[in-house]
């Protein structure tokens, strides 16, 4: 209490307390969570690698120029050693360099696919949750369809169709770009459902009525009053979506549908699979790289959700 009665002769002390923003409080909570901190640093570390990897890699990870193969001197199926910390690939590339370069691919695919999903999912969710009625009915049925489509089969069909030039607009894109688009296009349904539910909940609150009574238009209400209040759950789910997209890209690459001109963790696992009995590290090292990043992203997402959960009580 900053309040004192005037008995002491002093005027009441009205010390304006500094406002603590919600995100500062959340960050304070995350800082107290060891696992979340480790995860956060690991994700940051991966982001740094994705940006600065050309500075750290000793060998070109993806040159297919004739004569390049085995020119690094490691030979095919090299065991990890001081010169090649992660060994060399079946065709003689430095796996360490490829892993670092693959970080960029994985993160970019994850980020952009999620961005597409978030834009579609948020738009669908806000409209369905705010207008309710038939708008919600139609949008939710479409969402249901996207939730039930067998992702892998649809992805493979679309990938093949686009590559064959059957969708002229997209024919100039590289395989990895097409994969990003497909992942984004199939990933929004779960988010749309969540945003719909949250939007409905928020738009039933009294302050939305109050703003409507002031005479604000729907667009203003949705963008200024509803969206910021469903943003936290969107952010949390996006973190999980990034992890999922990275995993799916790796899965496609593992099945042999990756981009042959791009180095990706999935491709590395796929390449190392052939001689798994003799050279397990060829598949395990990139496998664990994927595992740790996705795990860190999921743990961090969980931690953010926990930090937000007991609704901002001081």
């Amino acid at each position: 209490m900053t309040y004192e009665t005037k008995t002491s002769g002093a005027t009441p002390t009205l010390k304006p307390k500094k406002s603590k923003s919600e995100w500062v409080i959340v960050f304070d909570r995350i800082k107290r969570n060891q696992i979340a901190l480790v995860s956060m640093y690991y994700i940051l570390f991966n982001i740094m690698i994705a940006i600065f990897f050309p500075l750290f890699i000793p060998y070109d990870p993806k040159s297919y120029a004739p004569g390049d193969i085995q020119r690094f001197g490691g030979g095919a199926y090299g065991r990890p050693n001081l010169k090649f910390p992660a060994g060399t690939s079946p065709v003689g590339f430095d796996v360490y360099s490829q892993l670092l370069a693959g970080t960029e691919t994985s993160l970019l695919v994850g980020l952009f696919a999620t961005l597409i999903s978030v834009i579609i999912g948020t738009a669908v969710g806000l409209l369905a949750g705010y207008y309710k009625g038939w708008v919600e009915e139609v949008l939710m049925r479409i969402t249901d369809i996207f939730l039930t489509l067998p992702f892998l089969i649809m992805a493979l069909i679309l990938l093949a169709a686009i590559k064959n030039g059957e969708v002229p607009v997209l024919s100039n894109l590289s395989t990895i770009q097409i994969i990003t688009l497909i992942l984004g296009f199939f990933g929004w349904a779960g988010l749309a459902r969540l945003v719909t539910a949250n939007t409905k909940q928020v738009s039933n609150l009294e302050y939305i009525d109050a703003i409507r009574l002031i005479g604000a238009r729907d667009r203003r209400i949705i963008l200024i009053h509803v969206l910021p209040n469903v943003l936290t759950s969107i952010i949390i789910l996006s973190a999980l979506l990034i992890g999922g997209a990275i995993l799916s890209e790796a899965g496609l690459a593992f099945l042999g549908f990756g981009d042959p001109t791009t180095v990706s963790w999935g491709t590395l696992v796929s390449n190392g699979r052939a001689q798994f009995n003799s050279y397990p590290e060829q598949a395990l090292i990139p496998g664990f790289t994927i595992f740790f990043l996705v795990l860190a992203i999921n743990l961090f997402g969980d931690a953010v959700r926990d930090a937000l959960d007991p609704k901002l009580k001081e």
């Binding site: 209490m1 900053t2 309040y3 009665t5 005037k6 008995t7 009441p12 009205l14 307390k17 001081e314």
Partner: peptide
């Protein structure tokens, strides 16, 4: 009652 007591004083004052 204290001479300087004002029941309306405390509205604005923070209880945090």
């Amino acid at each position: 009652i204290n001479a300087d007591y004002d029941p309306n004083l405390g509205y604005a004052i923070d209880n945090l």
